[in-house]
Amino acid sequence: MIRDTFDRLKSRGEMAFMPYLMAGYPSLERSMEHLRCMACSGADIIELGIPFSDPVADGSTIQAASQKALERGVTLSAVLEALQSVQVDVPILLMSYVNPLLALGRDRLMEQLPKSGVHGLIIPDVPHEESQPWRMATSSAGLSLIPLIAPTTSENRIGCIADSTDGFLYYVSVTGTTGVRDDLPEDLPNAVARVRKCTNKPVAVGFGVSSPEHVRQLAGCADGVVVGSRIVQAIGRDEDLKSLVRSFKDATRSGTCS
């Protein structure tokens, strides 16, 4: 289903817009409302973050949201249960550090994810070398395991990683953590082109993508964009989520790379 989404958008000349939100921030009920709202306002795929006490790949915005969610007692089980009563017609990807997933148990997780409308998993602290049990488990459950590619990933390695997924490649735009940034790295289009040379799989760009203008800069180079901290920030400030999501989605229709 994730690949279908990318194929469909590609045929229309659009990038996939993938907003991220932290489950349980500011509350689980609100997160479910936000999920529905984003699905109706133009999100093509939604990434749902699971709170964790030690999020080493995240900057201050997502760290703080994660902490707030944990203070409210939000757990992975509670998130999966809440998802069962939310029907959205866009694929959901769960993004979680590995320890909460292990605590629930891989088998139980694989049973519950499809029932909760989840189509794939992103585990930022499980690199390719450690991913085999997760690849096997997701593939037998009919889910995608979405791997990350970094600016420091060699071309050989990009090829190996790309072969391992049936979904897309999540390209981390910067060496660094998640967070709102004023500018994207200048050489980002070249960096994405380097990834493309190694694979035909769709490539989405995340980390630091913070404005519709950033999204327009990626038009024609990337197949999708992930916007995380900016969305979480907007939720924290109670901004109009619908129009924010729309403005990002509109930017994905802006045509080819300059």
């Binding site: 930022p124 602290d125 690199p127 390719h128 420091t152 990933t153």
Partner: peptide
Amino acid sequence: FVPETLMS
């Protein structure tokens, strides 16, 4: 068990 950025 680290982010991909650190693997290299």
